[in-house]
Design a protein around this nucleic acid. Structure first.
Lengths: 219, 219
DNA sequence: ACTCCTCATGACCGCGTGGTCACATGGTAG
DNA sequence: CTACCATGTGACCACGCGGTCATGAGGAGT
């Protein structure tokens, strides 16, 4: 985590550095990301990076924590306090998650990289932590869903949590493909307007419908 | 693709090299994988690698093609010729896919890496090709499923294909977590007996049930 | 014995990496 | 004016990478 020196920095410099670092880790995975490039982009000497953080891993941990807090905070802040049924809460959670991703492509792309990089000694712990947090969230949803009768009581909870997690995480892949929104391009240049809320909702309707009824005809 | 020199090699040497290369790309992603290490592991000089292949990318393409052919061949060879309903065919396809993965952890892990590495100029094309092939397969299943009435006619086919693909691909994550089977360990040391067929089937029942009925109670 | 040709070899190249460190800078307290 | 301390700096280090290439070994044809 950041040293005191980093906290003492004038805020514009601190932010310029943070932005450069986020860019780098959003476009490259951990191994490929380069501390030298971050320093160059931020317009500071490479040595300064090591005045702010203990090293590459430390910087990475800071950025991931920051991104995760922002995203979870965004979602929580957007969810209505009153309960609503399981499917409605799930729909809104994923919806606001997707909104966050399209409006904060750098942070979203960083978290995406973390999710799909569970290998490697440097990233393993961070990836596991992030996944655990997401699982906890979904499991809470499922548990209350079962208690309230919105979900079948005989469900294999572990499996349901897995399926919901996977579908909601990979939904970003589907959305970005379907609406031709490249997160990497959005980070590199400011290109591409975010996918309209209505379009996200349309796909989400499809997903919730699938989850609610299954693929088979009701006959 | 391999040069003539590689084809002319005595088969034991060729296989020792292929095994070493598969190991390397199964345990590391493309950038992290090292040609020098492969040569060392295979007990040959680094220069020899460049007698067999045009370079790292060329070697990678060869290995991925090989792994994909083996896996698709294995699944096709295990599927009964007579049709069966959509869900039964889907179940069997995923089942044999999982069986292949547990009995060929090196190849499985390589394909896994390809799937989750769509970034990077060197791997982009290969990843896209593999995904396209899988999508084509699933789409065929869905199309005939709709024609035969096993699936609702109003389904958004694109979305259904996405969901089926994602769930079946990520099922390996779930299985390996649930049954504590580490693919990476299985590659590095021969450790860990594959998950029993019955256990795979039990999870698959859960998946197919989910897809067939959806999460909501039938009420 | 001489010539080809295929293949094996490992020292070597240029590069970019994460990380270090001796030194420079500048503000503040005495 | 001096002493101190927090910061900034970039040349430098060792490393491992993908890739090259001059050299040599060995078998086949004549």
């Amino acid at each position: 985590m950041p040293k005191a020196t980093f906290q003492n920095l004038p805020s514009d410099k601190r932010e310029r550095f943070t932005a450069a670092a986020l860019d780098e880790f959003a476009v490259h995975d951990y191994r490929t990301a380069s501390v030298s490039r971050i320093a160059r982009m931020a317009g500071i000497a490479k040595g300064s990076v090591y005045q702010y953080f203990d090293g590459k891993q430390d910087l990475y941990l800071y950025l991931v924590t920051l991104a995760a807090e922002r995203k979870f905070g965004f979602i929580d802040g957007s969810l209505p306090a009153d309960a609503g049924g399981f499917f409605e809460r799930f729909r809104l959670t994923v919806f606001h998650g997707a909104r966050f991703d399209f409006t904060h492509p750098r942070l979203a792309r960083l978290l995406y990289n973390v999710t799909y990089e569970p290998t490697g000694p440097e990233t393993r712990a961070v990836s596991a932590q992030l996944k655990a947090a997401s699982y906890r969230y979904v499991r809470g949803l499922v548990d209350t869903g079962i208690r309230s009768g919105d979900l079948r009581a005989e469900l294999d909870v572990d499996f349901a949590v897995f399926a919901l997690y996977q579908l909601s995480v990979s939904l970003r892949d589907y959305l970005s493909e379907r609406f031709a929104f490249s997160f990497v391009d959005a980070v590199r240049h400011g290109s591409g307007s975010p996918v309209p809320d209505d379009d996200i909702m349309a796909v989400l309707d499809e997903l919730v419908e699938l989850l609610r009824r299954g693929l088979a005809p009701t006959t």
